[in-house]
Every structure is written in C-alpha cells, then in structure tokens.
Design a protein around this nucleic acid. Structure first.
Lengths: 250, 250
DNA sequence: GGATTTAACTTGTAATAACAAGCTAAATAC
DNA sequence: GTATTTAGCTTGTTATTACAAGTTAAATCC
C-alpha cells in the first residue's frame, strides 16, 4: 500500500491509538457542518473521496458517517450521497424551536444558579443509583437558560464525582456540558432514559421561569449514559413551552 | 469456503436478495428478546457464536447488533458481550411508565375513534409537506389508548396514501402501526422530528381524555421518516401525564 | 428535438483477515 | 490460603475486496 501523509491516515507515529480514526473523521466533518462549511442540503464528499482525502478505507469512512447519521447531522441516500441535515440531534430532546423565529437568530444565554459543587447524592434520587456512584458523591449544578432574556429552562444536573480533573472549576456559561465532556474528557453520550410530564408549575419553579401560577410546564427527568462504563449522569429539567416548543430529532 | 445450510446463510437459492441478512438476524434476535427467550440483563451469544450459528461473518453479525443497539434492545460492552436491555426504545418517546406499577402488568387497550380513511391533507398542516405527498391525499386515523380503562393518549395519525395495499382495511387495535409497517410493508422508521409542549387541555381533548378543564396535558407533533425515500408520516398526540409519565430510551 | 439507453457515478451489503483492548476465570507463585 | 499472573474469552478497530442497487447525466437512437 502506498502510504500517504494525510491528516488522519496512518502516519509513522502511532499515537493514533488513543482516538480511533473513524472518530477523528467524525469530529472533522461534524466541525465542518457546525461551522457552515457544509450547509443544509449540501452533499458531503462521497465515501470514496473521503477515503482518498483522509487516507482511510471505506469501512472506516462509513463508520464515521454512520455516527453522523446517528447524531442527526446527515442523512444518507443510496445512489446519491450524504445530505447535510444541520439540525443537531442533541440528546433525544434538547433543542428549542420557536414558532416564528429561526434557531440561529435566537439570543441564547445560560445563567449559572449554583456553580458545580461536590455534595452527597440525594437520599431518594429520581433514578436508581448504582452503589459505586453513591460512595464518592456527586457534582451538583443548577442552570437557567434564557432566550431573548426570557427564562426557558431550569436545569439541575448531577454528575458522578469520579476522575474529572478540574471539572468544578470549568465554566458552563454556554450550552457546552456535552461538548466539554466529549472534547475534554472523551466522554461520549451513548444513550439514556427519560421521563416526561406536563405538570402545573410549582411556586419555586414559577419564580425561576417567571411564570404565573397554575401554568403548565414541561418536566423531564433524564439518565444519560456514556461510553465510559459506569459513568452515567442525570438531569432534572423544567421548561416553559408557552412560546417555544421543545424540538427533537431522532 | 465450506457452505453450511443454516437459517440465514447463503443457500443455493438466491431469493435472499430481497431482505439483507443482517436485517434477518436483527428480526430473529429482536423476536427472541421480545418473546423473553433472552431476558433483561442476559448476555446474547457472542458475535463469533452468532456467526457460526447462522452462517454469517462478523461484519454482518455486528451490523445486526448495531441495529439492536440503535433501537435500544441491547447494550454492548467491550470484553464482556451484548447485554439485553429489553426496554424497547420506541421512537424517541413512546412507552409509558407508571409511578408504581410495572409496564407488563398494565392493561393496555387501543380504541379506534376514526378508522383509517383517505382524505385530502389539511391545508395548514403542522409540518411542511412535500408536493408529491399533497397530490394523492392522506390516510387519516384517530386512536385513543387506555391504560386500566383510563384514557391516556389521543393520537391522530396521517400517512401518505401511496402504495400500501389493503392498508385501510387493516386493524390497528393493538399498538401495531410501526410493527405493521415494518413486517407487512418492509417500511422501517429511520428517524424523524418532534415538537413537544405542555399546554392547558382544550375542551375537546379533555372530553376524550376524561380530564378536568385547565389541567396540563402533553402535546406532541411528530414527523416520522422511513427507509422508503419520500415516505414520511405524521402524528399529533395528546397525553395525560397526571398518573403516568411518558417514558423514552434514546 | 425528444425519448431512450447507457455509462459512470453514488451508497448498500457481504466475506475475509488481522490485531488491539477489555474482561474473567483458571493456573501459578508465594 | 491469598495474591498475582496468565490464557482465553469477549467486543473494538481497520484494511481489502467484490458485487448489488439506486441516481444522474451524458451519449445514443429515432
């Protein structure tokens, strides 16, 4: 085989063992899509072109594309190609869609109500907790997310306190918890479970979300699994859907 | 290569071209899981065992297992095996979880309010409609789903009226729309989009769901894509979450 | 010019091979 | 007996090859 010296392909140094090649290509293409190099409806380079460009073989390229499909960045069509979808899938449900305004034009802000701090897990936690998590406590965090200055989400996050160097000192001002875990700690979300209710807003939540009492509010409880065995984290979330719907691609 | 005459593997007849082998293995394992042959927490046979049993190679077997992972039937762990998860992922959100009772013990009933009928698409449909769907009208259906005799879902479904022989005469008493499409028409759900709100129940919906006025109710609007290009269907759903939460695996 | 065929793309399926890395239990050393 | 090592499993990654099948546009025929 003729060895070509490209970005991903097998170079002489073998430090590539850390991160798989399909994952690296995934990150590159994902970045390109998020940066707008490929736009909605565009065709990605064909699999064979990607092979040639990055010095990989088709199974590897296809693996990367499969991940992009799974995460909702592209759709594939036989005989045609990989079509950029651009709507990030988020996790089951995550994004916000206004009735009139486009997503990009929204002024999104995240306010930290309780900075990441280590505390014991709550006694009657809303998901059954494995014992190995109970021992070392959890990283607790409360955030409020606002759109155009109006509060929309009230989000309580619980992470296992194991082996996340410098985590509590990080900033989570932008919606970057998932990105932070992915890029700084190589923790990928692989799935999870969620429960959803429509409830009447409680006085406390109403205060955070600036809602009138008795108004309906969306309540989500989520367990989020990762590729790191035993590392799951949790989120309890309240959302005012009077002006914006929760939007999800699956 | 030594040809073995197993259930899936290449036999002399080549009618196997219709349905891919990984898909057949997927259906077999899925059925086994749903029938309880493999139970929650069990390990599936190893990939090599599945290869030997069904006369397939590892890439094919892995493809089938990947699909099972994607649909939430199993989870894989390196060095260990494929662990049966049993909770079907449904589509984003579908299943119902009671606060106390287990899923299996629930008495589930589906009542048809409006039998499948062909009618034109609504003028201001809640998802943008491709032109090729508009022409041939839609199959319209209203269903009510009850748990222990109490109505829980009110579901309006819209399907494109193209090439579904005998569809309107089928029964949809049990929760089998997705199964029917999958097994009778080889239509697989590949993804979709959904919007979710918590709203105050309208008088009409309150009547169907036997709720008091002003109570919060969950509202979902979903576009569901399939492997058949151009064939997407739609669902508008209202759910009373006062006693049961919507449950989803992703 | 217009309809049809063909050729050159695209992604989808499948077999084969080899090694890496995580997990577990049996074998070994102390 | 207990702790450690090892061997043999498991899934994960990657390359190679070949053909099938859907899409599209150029070439051909009429």
């Amino acid at each position: 085989m003729i060895v070509k010296t490209f970005a991903i392909g097998k170079s002489v140094m073998k430090k590539s063992t850390l991160i798989p090649q399909y994952r690296r290509l995934y990150e590159i293409l994902r970045k390109h899509i998020e940066e707008g190099i490929y736009r909605e409806g565009d065709l990605l380079p064909s699999e064979n072109e990607l092979c040639a460009t990055y010095g990989l073989t088709r199974p590897t390229v296809r693996h990367a594309l499969d991940e992009l499909v799974k995460d909702g960045f592209i759709k594939k069509q036989k005989g045609k190609g990989s079509i950029v979808h651009s709507l990030p899938k988020g996790i089951g449900i995550l994004s916000v869609a206004g009735t009139t305004s486009a997503l990009g034009s929204l002024d999104l802000e995240t306010r930290i109500l309780v900075k990441p701090e280590i505390r014991p897990w709550e006694e009657d936690f809303f998901f059954p907790l494995p014992d190995h998590l109970r021992e070392s406590g959890c990283i607790y965090m409360e955030r409020l997310r606002l759109i155009n200055g109006k509060p929309l989400f009230y989000d309580i996050t619980y992470l296992p306190n194991i082996n996340l160097p410098r985590f509590t000192s990080r900033s989570f001002e932008n919606r970057s918890l998932f990105d932070t875990l992915r890029t700084s700690y190589q923790i990928d979300v692989t799935g999870g479970e969620q429960r959803i209710w429509a409830i009447k807003v409680t006085p406390e939540i109403a205060r955070y979300l600036e809602m009138k009492p008795e108004e309906p509010v969306l309540h989500l409880e989520r367990k989020i699994d990762t590729n790191r065995v035993g590392f799951s984290f949790f989120s309890s979330l309240y959302c005012n859907t009077s002006e914006h719907a929760l939007f999800g691609v699956f």
